[in-house]
Nucleic acid binder design. Structure first.
Length: 1045
RNA sequence: GCUCCGGUAGCUCAAGGGGUUAGAGCAUGUGCCUUAUAAGCGCAAGGUUGUGGGUUCGAUGCCCACUCGGAGUACCA
C-alpha cells in the first residue's frame, strides 16, 4: 500500500479547504466529543460574543487560544463539550439599531414603539452571525454553534430571574439613591466596569475659580475651584480640611479671599499684588455661612455653610471644595451626614430643569460657557482657564458621562468582597500577575454592582413594586403565572410584554407592576454557566457536570467584564469559582504599536491574512510570536514568515519522505525496532523527538501556548536541515538493508508524531499529514483529532547525545566558516579538517561522527587538533563564574595573574588535569583545571574559524587528485542541473554524451564510475559533435547532453 | 495622581535565580549546497540591553530615580 503522492509545492488554501470539507463530511468535530463521552469531563466555557459587528483579527486571537487547549484535552481522552453562545442584549445592540433607524433618544424610541424597537434589536444582534460562523469555521475553532445558547431566549432569561431571586433571598438586592456615572444620551446609569471602558485622556474642561462671599465678613470670600460650572446651581455647601492651614489674602482691590495656604503661590502669580492678612486652621472656618452664586431651587433646612471633610486636599485647586450633593459621590456622602438638601437641578436628559431659568432645558455642558460669562458679569469669577484631565465617556456612544444622583437597583457584591478575594486566590491566571494585579486590585476596590439600566433591549429586571414601594422578585415563569393567576408560559419575557403584567401584592392586595429597568448586559454573560442550561428548571445533571469551567479565555479587557461577572455570580450563588484556569490575552496592536480600532482604521482584516497565508499559519503566528498575555504588534507579512520558515520546511520534509517511501514501496512495520537497528543519527533525532513530546506536553498542561509551539519549530528545522540532509543517501541508495529501513522508520515516526503534536495548534496541516501517513483504507474514520496524544519515552531521551550533536553542528558550521574565509567552495574536496573543543577535545566524538562531518565539509580526514605535535597558540581564559564565586574580591587580581602565566606550560598542565599556581599579593593560589578554559586561536597553514572556544582548521593544500575530484563533482552538478531542467524523473536512468577540454576531460575520464553512479547514468561517452550549449567549469570548456535510456 | 506590563540588532521577538564572546527569524550584504526545498543552506555585518545613579570582584539581569510606550485605576472637586 502506498502513500498518496505529495506535491512539493503546497497549495495551502486548497489543502485547508479540503481538510475542512473532510471534517464536515465526516462530522469529525462531533465525533471528537462523542468518542470521549466516557472520559473525564473537561469543561470549557465560550465567552459569548455579540454578532452585531464584524469579527476582527483580535477575535481570531482569542478563538485560537480558546481552541488549542480543548483540542489537546480531547486527544488526552477527555470529554470536552464545547457549546457556543451569543451575547445578544444591551446597549451595543440598541445603539446600532438607533443608528439604523435614525433615532436619537429615548423619546423617539418610545414613540417608535418598544416592541418594534426590540424586534429590530433581536434581528440586529445576529446581523453578522454568518460572518462569525464563517470565520469561526475557517480558522478551525471547534465550538458547537448549532446548539449555541442565546441570551435573549426565554429559557435563558428565566434562569437569570431565578438567580436574581436567589440573590434577593440572601438580601443582596436593594434600591439605592446614589451618585452614579450617567449617560445623558442613553438615559441610563452605567456600572463601574462599563465606566472603566470609556476613560479618555486629555479631556479639556473649564477650570474656574469662583468667589463665594461670606455673610459675616464683608469684602471677604471663600475661593472655590471646580471643573464643572454646571454643578454650581446645585451648590449646597463648601468643604474644608480641618487640619489644613488657610490664609486670608487681600488683593489690590481691597477684597479678600480665603484659600489654603499651600496653594497661594500657584493661585497668585508674581504680578498679582496681594498680601496675607490672616491665617487659620480649617476648623476655624467650619460653620461660616456664605452667599451661594445661585439659588434657583427653594429648599428647606440649613445650607450654604462651611463643613469639615478629610478628603479635601491641597494638591490642586484652592483647598475649598464646592459641594453639589446630587453630582458627586463625596458630595452626596457629606450632604447625608450634615443633612444638607439635595438640589436636583438637572433632568434625566442632562438638561437644566425649568427652575434654572436662564439655562432651562439646555444640556448642562453646553451651558458651561454661559455660566462662566454670568459669573464674570457678577464679579464672582476670580479666574477661569482650561483644564486637561482624564474623564469618563460612555463606552458605546462616546457622550461625556455626568455624575448624577439616580435611584437604581444594586447587588450588594461588597457583602461578599472577602470571599471574592479568597476564591480568586485559587484561580490559575495566565499570565500569573493578573490574579493579584489587575483582577486582585479590582476585587479589593469592589463596590456594589449597579444592576439596573433604564433601557429597552435587555433582560427585564423581574421586580414588581406597588405604590407603597413594597417589592418582590419573581423567580420563574411559573411563579409569575401563579401571581397573575394566568398562564404566562407563552409570554415573551422582554419589554414591553412583561411591562403589561400586573398582579395584586400577595400581602396587601395592592397592585404591583414591574419596575421599568432592564439589567446590566454583563450580568447576562456572567450568568452563562447557569442560564445556558436553563438551570435549575432543567438539565441539572449537565449543569453539575459542567460547572465550574476548567478553562476560559478572553482578552485582558474582560477582566472587569466577563471574568468579573462570572466570578461574582458564582461566588454569591454557589460560593464557588466559575473557572479554575483562565488565559488572559494581551491586546493586538498594529504595526506602529497602536491599539487596533475601527475609528483609527488600522484594523487588519482577518480574511486578508487567511486568504494569503492560511488559518494554520495565522494561528501559529499567534501562538509563537509572544507570550499570550503580552500585547503584540501584528501585520499580514509577519504571518507570511511562518509559512516560509516553518510550514514549507515541514511540508518539504513530508514530501521528501512520501516520494521516496513510495519509490521503495516502504510502509510502516511495527516489527522494525529503530532502537535496536538505528544509527547514531537515528537515535539522536528520536531522542530529540521524545524530548520534544515532553516539552510540548508539559507546556500544554500548563496553558503555555508559546511553549507548546516554539519547540516544534526548532525540531522541524533540525529534522529537515540536519537529519534529512545528512541521511538523504540512506534513502536513495539501492540496497534495501536495515540501515535504509531504520532511516524510513525514524523519519516516519518523527513525521507522524509531529502531526499529533501539531493537531491542537495547526489543525489543518496536522490532519493532512496524519491521514496520509496513517495508511488506512477507511480514511473517513481517521483524523488526528480523534487520535491519542503521543507519550514520550524518558529512556529514549539522551541529553548527552543531544548535546553532542549540537556540538557537531557547531563544528561543522565553523568548518563552513573556514572554507568561506579561504574561498574554497564545498565542491572542492580538501584533505583534512581539524577541530579544537576545549575540554571535549579528548573525547572520541570526532571519530564517531567522522563520516557525517567529512560528508558535510567534503574533506578526506577529520581529527582533533593534536596539542603535542602542532604549533598551536594557546590562550588562558579564567572562568568568572567559578573563580568569582570562590574568591570574591580577589578575582580581578587572580585574573591578571593568570594572564601573565606562560600559556604553553600552563595549558599542558591544565589539559593534563594538573593545577596551576598563581601568586596574588602575598597569597599562593592553586587554580583547578575546570576554573580556566584553555583556548586555541589559530595556526599557520590552516584556514581557521573560531567561536566560543571552538576552532575549526582546514588544510588548504590542493593535490592534483583533489583538483580532479573537484572537477568531477562540478561535472556531476552540471548533469544534475540538466536532469532537472530536462524534466527527468528522479528515478530515470540516462545516457550522457559530452565534450570537455584539458584537465576537465581527464577528470571526467578518471571519475567516470563515480559520475555515472551519482547521475544514474548507464553510459558516459566522450563525443566530438555534441549538441548543446557550451558551458564553463573554471577555465575549462564543456558541452554536455543527456538522453533518457 | 496611583498600580501593572513593557523598552534588548533597522523590524518581530528570545535568553538571563548576576559570571567567558546577549541569541533566533525577517530585512541587508555576500557566498553556496542540491536525484526534498531559490518559498533553500551558510557566512558576514548589525547591540554602550531606554537614561542616570547605587549594590557587587563583576549588572543587560538586583535596588533607587528618571524617561518613553501601552494598559489599568481614581471621591481630580
Amino acid at each position: 500500500m502506498k502513500f498518496k503522492p505529495v506535491n512539493s509545492r503546497l497549495d495551502i488554501e486548497n489543502m485547508e479547504l479540503e481538510v475542512l470539507k473532510f471534517w464536515k463530511d465526516n462530522q469529525v468535530f462531533k465525533k471528537s466529543m462523542e468518542s470521549r463521552e466516557d472520559g473525564r469531563t473537561y469543561v470549557f466555557y465560550e465567552g459569548p460574543p455579540t454578532a452585531n459587528g464584524l469579527p476582527g483579527s483580535h477575535h481570531v486571537l482569542s478563538r485560537a487560544f480558546k481552541d488549542i487547549f480543548p483540542r489537546y484535552r480531547v486527544m488526552r481522552g477527555d470529554y470536552v463539550l464545547r457549546r457556543g453562545g451569543w451575547d445578544t442584549h444591551g446597549l451595543p445592540v440598541e445603539i446600532e439599531v438607533e443608528k439604523q433607524l435614525g433615532l436619537t433618544g429615548k423619546e423617539q424610541i418610545e414613540s417608535y414603539g418598544i416592541s418594534q424597537f426590540n424586534a429590530q434589536c433581536r434581528q440586529s444582534a445576529f446581523e453578522y452571525i454568518q460572518e462569525w460562523e464563517k470565520l469561526t469555521d475557517r480558522i478551525g475553532f471547534w465550538v458547537d454553534l448549532e446548539t449555541a445558547y442565546v441570551t435573549f431566549e426565554n429559557d435563558y432569561i428565566e434562569s437569570i430571574w431565578w438567580i436574581l431571586k436567589q440573590l434577593s433571598e440572601k438580601e443582596l438586592i436593594y434600591k439605592g439613591f446614589k451618585v452614579v456615572p450617567y449617560c445623558t444620551r442613553c438615559g441610563t446609569a452605567l456600572s463601574d466596569h462599563e465606566l472603566s471602558l470609556g476613560y479618555q485622556d486629555n479631556t479639556s474642561d473649564p477650570s474656574i475659580f469662583v468667589k463665594f462671599p461670606l455673610k459675616d465678613l464683608s469684602n471677604t470670600s471663600l475661593l472655590i475651584w471646580t471643573t464643572t460650572p454646571w454643578t454650581l446651581p446645585g451648590n449646597v455647601g463648601v468643604a474644608v480640611n480641618p487640619e489644613v492651614d488657610y490664609v486670608t489674602v487681600e488683593l489690590e482691590d481691597a477684597t479678600s479671599l480665603i484659600v489654603a495656604k499651600a496653594l497661594c503661590t500657584t493661585l497668585f502669580t508674581d504680578d498679582t499684588k496681594y498680601s496675607v492678612t490672616g491665617e487659620m486652621k480649617g476648623t476655624e472656618l467650619v460653620g461660616m455661612e456664605y452667599e451661594p452664586p445661585y439659588s434657583f431651587i427653594p429648599f428647606e433646612g440649613k445650607a450654604h455653610y462651611v463643613i469639615s471633610a478629610d478628603f479635601v486636599t491641597t494638591s490642586e485647586g484652592t483647598g475649598v471644595v464646592h459641594m453639589a450633593a446630587a453630582f458627586g459621590a463625596d458630595d452626596m456622602m457629606v450632604a447625608t451626614k450634615y443633612d444638607l438638601p439635595i438640589l436636583m437641578t438637572v433632568d434625566e436628559k442632562g438638561c437644566f430643569v425649568k427652575e434654572v431659568v436662564p439655562w432651562s432645558s439646555m444640556w448642562v455642558k453646553d451651558a458651561d460657557p454661559l455660566i462662566i460669562d454670568d459669573l464674570v458679569e457678577k464679579n464672582l469669577m476670580f479666574k477661569h482657564e482650561k483644564y486637561l484631565h482624564t474623564y469618563p465617556f460612555c463606552w458605546r456612544c462616546n457622550t461625556p458621562l455626568l455624575y448624577m444622583a439616580r435611584s437604581t437597583w444594586y447587588i450588594s457584591t461588597t457583602t461578599f468582597k472577602s470571599r471574592l478575594v479568597e476564591l480568586n486566590k485559587t484561580i490559575n491566571w495566565y499570565p500569573h500577575h493578573i490574579r493579584d494585579g489587575r483582577f486582585g486590585n479590582w476585587l479589593d476596590n469592589n463596590v456594589d454592582w449597579a444592576l439596573g439600566r433604564d433601557r429597552y433591549w435587555g433582560t427585564p429586571l423581574p421586580i414588581w413594586m406597588d405604590e407603597d414601594g413594597d417589592w418582590l422578585i419573581v423567580g420563574s415563569v411559573q411563579e409569575l403565572s401563579e401571581l397573575t393567576d394566568s398562564n404566562c408560559s407563552e409570554l415573551d419575557l422582554h419589554r414591553p410584554y412583561v411591562d403589561e403584567i400586573v398582579f395584586p401584592n400577595p400581602k396587601t392586595g395592592k397592585q404591583m407592576s414591574r419596575v421599568p429597568e432592564v439589567i446590566d448586559v454583563w450580568f447576562d454573560s456572567g450568568a452563562m454557566p447557569i442560564a445556558q442550561w436553563h438551570y435549575p428548571f432543567e438539565n441539572s445533571e449537565i449543569f453539575d457536570q459542567q460547572f465550574p469551567a476548567n478553562y476560559i479565555c478572553e482578552a485582558v479587557d474582560q477582566t472587569r467584564g466577563w471574568f468579573y461577572s462570572l466570578h461574582a455570580i458564582s461566588t454569591m450563588l454557589f460560593n464557588s469559582v466559575a473557572f479554575k484556569n483562565v488565559a488572559c490575552l494581551g491586546l493586538i496592536l498594529d504595526e506602529n504599536g497602536q491599539k487596533m480600532s475601527k475609528s483609527k482604521g488600522n484594523i487588519v482584516d482577518p480574511w486578508d491574512v487567511i486568504d494569503k497565508h492560511g488559518a494554520d499559519a495565522f494561528r501559529w503566528y499567534l501562538y509563537t510570536a509572544s507570550p499570550a498575555g503580552q500585547e503584540r504588534r501584528f501585520s499580514t507579512d509577519l504571518v507570511g514568515e511562518v509559512v516560509r520558515n516553518f510550514t514549507l520546511t515541514l511540508w518539504n520534509t513530508y514530501a521528501f519522505f512520501v516520494t521516496y517511501a513510495n519509490l521503495d514501496s516502504w510502509s510502516p512495520n511495527s516489527d522494525f525496532d529503530v532502537e535496536d537497528k538505528g544509527s547514531d543519527i537515528d537515535l539522536w533525532i528520536i531522542s530529540e523527538l521524545n524530548n520534544l513530546v515532553k516539552d510540548v506536553t508539559d507546556a500544554l498542561e500548563n496553558y503555555d501556548a508559546t511553549g507548546a509551539t516554539r519547540p516544534i519549530e526548532r525540531f522541524v528545522d533540525l529534522l529537515s536541515n540536519w537529519y534529512v540532509r545528512l541521511s538523504r543517501r540512506r534513502f536513495w541508495k539501492t540496497e534495501d538493508d536495515s540501515d535504509k529501513k531504520a532511516a524510513y522508520a525514524t523519519l516516519y515516526q518523527c513525521l507522524l508524531t509531529i502531526s499529533k503534536l501539531l493537531a491542537p495548534s495547526m489543525p489543518f496541516i496536522a490532519d493532512e499529514l496524519y491521514r496520509n501517513l496513517i495508511l488506512d483504507d477507511d480514511e473517513s474514520k481517521n483524523s488526528v483529532h480523534l487520535s491519542d496524544w503521543p507519550d514520550y519515552d524518558a529512556h529514549l531521551i539522551d541529553q548527552n547525545l543531544n548535546e553532542e550533536m549540537r556540538l557537531i553542528q557547531k563544528l561543522v558550521s565553523l568548518g563552513h566558516n573556514a572554507r568561506q574565509s579561504a574561498q574554497l567552495k564545498v565542491r572542492q574536496p580538501l584533505s583534512e579538517v581539524v577541530f579544537w573543543a576545549g575540554g571535549k577535545t579528548k573525547d572520541n566524538l570526532i571519530e564517531r561522527y567522522a563520516g557525517l562531518i567529512s560528508t558535510e565539509l567534503n574533506v578526506k580526514k577529520v581529527r582533533w587538533l593534536d596539542s603535542a605535535d602542532e604549533a598551536i597558540v594557546y590562550t588562558l581564559h579564567p572562568l568568572p563564574k567559578q573563580l568569582g564565586q570562590k574568591y570574591g574580591s580577589l578575582f580581578p587580581g587572580i585574573r591578571e595573574a593568570i594572564k601573565t602565566l606562560d600559556p604553553v606550560d600552563a595549558s599542558s598542565k591544565l589539559l593534563g588535569g594538573e593545577n596551576v599556581r598563581v601568586i596574588v599579593g602575598s597569597d599562593d593560589i592553586d587554580i583547578l583545571p575546570d576554573e580556566i578554559e584553555v583556548r586555541v586561536q589559530s595556526r599557520k597553514g590552516f584556514a581557521t574559524a573560531e567561536e566560543g572556544g571552538l576552532v575549526a582548521g582546514l588544510v588548504t593544500d590542493l593535490t592534483e587528485d583533489l583538483i580532479m575530484e573537484g572537477l568531477a563533482r562540478e561535472f556531476v552538478r552540471k548533469v544534475q542541473d540538466l536532469r532537472k531542467s530536462n524534466g527527468f524523473d528522479i528515478s530515470d536512468r540516462i545516457s550522457i554524451t559530452y565534450k570537455a577540454s584539458g584537465v576537465l576531460n581527464d577528470a571526467i575520464g578518471r571519475h567516470s564510475g563515480y559520475i555515472m553512479g551519482e547521475a544514474l547514468a548507464l553510459s558516459l561517452d566522450l563525443v566530438e559533435d555534441v549538441e548543446g550549449n557550451e558551458e564553463k567549469i573554471g577555465d575549462h570548456h564543456l558541452i554536455v547532453s543527456l538522453q533518457k535510456s
